[in-house]
């Protein structure tokens, strides 16, 4: 049986489920929704497996590596697209989570990233491990990086014009002690943010800017929202 709920959470889950069941039973002799919810929490806690967590991407207890894949077509020639990416210090122009990428020599670079939701930064060194001009750039963090990470970008001519860009990023959270806090950063939300940022590459290289509405005027945001 796969387990994707940690031990603390399992205990809490059973306790919350029992509380909900007991309370609902006393008050109203079994309204269906709290009853179902309570039952669900107990089952989830005792089995250590949560289908909902599974569905949102938590497949087991150990935080797995995060792999991010983006495919996009940009309407610029392959040489230019490759060159923009190969000039690593350009990366922060479209990936807002990167504060700086400093190219130390042809192969080595130092990356500084902001930690989402805090003022903190994480730094690591990386080296280019593959470089096929106009086709492929591959890099990985060197030994000692807190978050081991690697990336690969491939460039292909698109059928009519422009360039197909295939980007893969992977992040490996550290194990044990210090690692736990950092591993929490590498969640599905983080994945979505990085995906969006990689896609901003297209906006920057085509339109020269990333569209935004941050800082525009609006009336009072009372919180009312029309979802559907």
């Amino acid at each position: 049986m796969i387990k994707n709920v940690g031990i603390t959470e399992r205990l809490l889950s059973v306790a919350a489920g029992a509380f909900l069941l007991g309370k609902t039973w006393r008050r109203s002799k079994g309204r269906p929704i709290p009853l179902l919810a309570g039952g669900y929490l107990i089952v989830r806690g005792s089995l250590g497996y949560c289908p909902l967590s599974h569905w949102i991407g938590k497949k087991n207890i150990h935080n797995p590596a995060i792999n991010i894949k983006v495919v996009m077509t940009v309407s610029k020639p392959r040489e230019m697209v490759y060159q923009y990416w190969r000039t690593l210090r350009n990366l922060p122009s479209f990936m807002a989570h990167l504060q700086e990428v400093e190219e130390k020599d042809e192969k080595h670079s130092r990356w500084v990233a902001k930690v989402p939701g805090t003022d903190g930064i994480i730094e690591w060194e990386a080296e280019i491990v593959k470089d096929e001009p106009q086709r492929l750039i591959g890099w990985q963090s060197t030994d000692g990086a807190i978050i081991r990470n690697a990336g690969k970008v491939q460039f292909f001519d698109a059928p009519k014009q422009g360039t197909e860009v295939r980007v893969i990023f992977s992040y490996h959270p550290p194990a044990g002690g210090v690692g736990v806090g950092i591993a929490k950063l590498l969640n599905p939300l983080f994945k979505g943010v990085i995906e969006d940022e990689i896609r901003n590459f297209k906006r920057v290289i085509e339109a020269g800017e990333i569209p935004t509405t941050v800082g525009q005027p609006a009336g009072v945001r009372t919180g009312k929202f029309k979802l559907i």
């Binding site: 800017e209 935004t212 800082g215 525009q216 005027p217 609006a218 009312k224």
Partner: peptide
């Protein structure tokens, strides 16, 4: 400045809001 804002279904209000600013170079 004054602006006509959506506040819900068939609920429009004229509100005082900030003036817009240039946010991107091509604005």
């Amino acid at each position: 400045m004054k602006a006509l804002c959506w506040n819900g279904v068939r609920d429009l209000r004229v509100e005082r809001v900030d003036d817009p600013k240039i946010l991107n170079p091509r604005d």
